[in-house]
C-alpha cells in the first residue's frame, strides 16, 4: 500500500447554514491519481475549495502527510496554498489574469513562496514550461494568455501549479474546456505528474476521464460519498445505483452505439432540500422503505459503498 499524501476524515462544510459536504472521507495516495466524480452540485468543487482552505471546514479532519490542517489560521493556509497544495482550474483562459504574461504570473507564485531573484524565478518558470512540453518555453513565458492555445494555456496552468513543488495537485475539471485531442494530452501529462511530482486529485463529471487517468475513484452525490474504491473494481462492477446510472450515461468507445444514451431522471437535490435518508433515493429505481435511513459507507466486494442493497451481505 502506497503512503497517503492526504487523509480526509468526516469532512463537513457548511455554507450559509446549509450542510454542503456531509462526512466526506477519502485518501489520496502517492503515485495514484484519485478521481472525484459526480454531477454538478454534488460537492466536488467545494471539496477542492475546502482542501485549499478557501471555504471554512465545519468539522472533520484533513491531514497532509502527518500535519492536521483543519482549523489553521488564514495566514497558515496562505503558506500552504500554492506551495503544498496547488490547484488547476477548468478554464485556463479565465483562470489566468488576461493582462499579464503567463511567465510573470508563474514567477509571481514562485516568488510569493520562495526567496528568489526575478531571473532565478524566470529560469525555473521556463524550465517548468519545458517539462510541461511547451515548445519554445522562454518565448512562450513572455506571451499573454490570449496568445496561447487552450492546450498550452492549460499546460502553463499546470506548470504554475507545480512551480513550488506541491505535494498535492487538485485539478478541477482540467479538460472540460479543451478540445478532445488536447484533453488526452493533458490527461497524459497529469498521469505523469502523479507518478513523478505530486499526488493528483482529479475532479470530473466524466467517467471516461476517470477510466483513462485515475487509479482510485470516489463517487459523490449531493455532498455525500456513495461509492469509493479502485477504478478497476468500480468500473467493472459498479454497485451503487447512482454509479451504475452514471456509467450507463457514459457512451462506450467500442461496441455498439446506443440509439439513445441513458439519462438519470430528475435533478440532484439542492442542499436545502436534501432527503433525510439515502440522498439518491428520490431518483433511485431500487428505492424502498429501508432507504428512509441514511446508509453508511460499508466495505463490500472490494470497495466501499453506501447503499442498503449491500448491507448485511459482506
Amino acid at each position: 500500500m502506497a503512503e497517503p499524501i492526504l487523509q480526509v476524515r468526516d469532512l463537513c462544510v457548511r455554507l450559509s447554514g446549509r450542510l454542503i459536504l456531509d462526512h466526506v472521507s477519502f485518501d489520496v495516495l502517492r503515485g495514484r491519481t484519485l478521481g472525484v466524480v459526480g454531477e454538478s452540485g454534488s460537492g466536488k468543487s467545494v471539496t477542492a475549495s475546502a482542501l485549499m482552505g478557501l471555504v471554512p471546514i465545519a468539522s472533520g479532519s484533513v491531514k497532509f502527510g502527518s500535519r492536521e490542517v483543519a482549523g489553521l489560521s488564514e495566514r497558515a493556509w496562505r503558506a500552504l496554498r500554492g506551495r503544498q497544495i496547488a490547484m488547476v482550474f477548468q478554464d485556463p483562459m479565465s483562470a489566468f489574469l488576461p493582462v499579464r504574461s503567463v511567465g510573470a504570473q508563474i514567477d509571481e507564485q514562485i516568488r510569493a513562496h520562495e526567496r528568489l531573484s526575478r531571473t532565478d524565478a524566470r529560469a525555473r518558470t521556463v524550465q517548468l514550461l519545458q517539462r510541461m512540453e511547451v515548445p519554445d518555453a522562454a518565448q512562450m513565458a513572455r506571451r499573454y494568455p490570449h496568445q496561447l492555445s487552450g492546450g498550452l494555456r492549460q499546460r502553463a496552468m499546470i506548470a504554475m501549479a507545480l512551480s513550488c513543488r506541491p505535494d498535492l495537485l487538485i485539478a478541477d475539471e482540467p479538460t472540460t474546456a479543451l478540445d478532445v485531442t488536447v484533453q488526452a494530452q493533458i490527461l497524459a501529462l497529469l498521469r505523469e505528474v502523479s507518478q513523478r511530482d505530486a499526488g493528483v486529485m482529479l475532479i470530473t463529471h466524466d467517467m471516461g476521464v476517470v477510466a483513462q487517468s485515475c487509479a482510485d475513484v470516489v463517487v459523490m452525490y449531493a455532498g455525500v460519498i456513495v461509492e469509493r474504491g479502485s477504478v478497476e473494481t468500480i468500473l467493472q462492477a459498479p454497485l451503487h445505483p447512482y454509479t451504475q446510472a452514471l456509467m450507463a450515461a457514459t457512451p462506450e468507445i467500442d461496441g455498439p452505439r446506443p440509439a439513445r444514451l441513458a439519462t438519470i431522471p430528475g435533478q440532484p437535490p439542492s442542499p436545502a432540500s436534501r432527503p433525510q435518508g439515502c440522498v439518491f433515493q428520490p431518483r433511485c429505481g431500487y428505492a424502498h422503505e429501508a432507504c428512509g435511513r441514511r446508509p453508511p459507507l460499508r466495505s463490500h466486494a472490494g470497495r466501499d459503498v453506501a447503499c442498503v442493497l449491500y448491507e448485511g451481505a459482506a
Binding site: 496562505r78 496554498r81 483562470a95 489566468f96 510569493a112
Partner: peptide, 20 residues
C-alpha cells in the same frame, strides 16, 4: 472572477491579490 480565485489559490496575500 476566476483569475482572483487563481490568485488566492497561489497563496498570495490579500493585498497582493488586490493590487496585482
Amino acid at each position: 472572477e476566476d483569475y482572483m480565485r487563481t490568485a488566492r489559490a497561489k497563496g498570495l496575500s490579500p493585498l497582493r491579490i488586490m493590487l496585482n
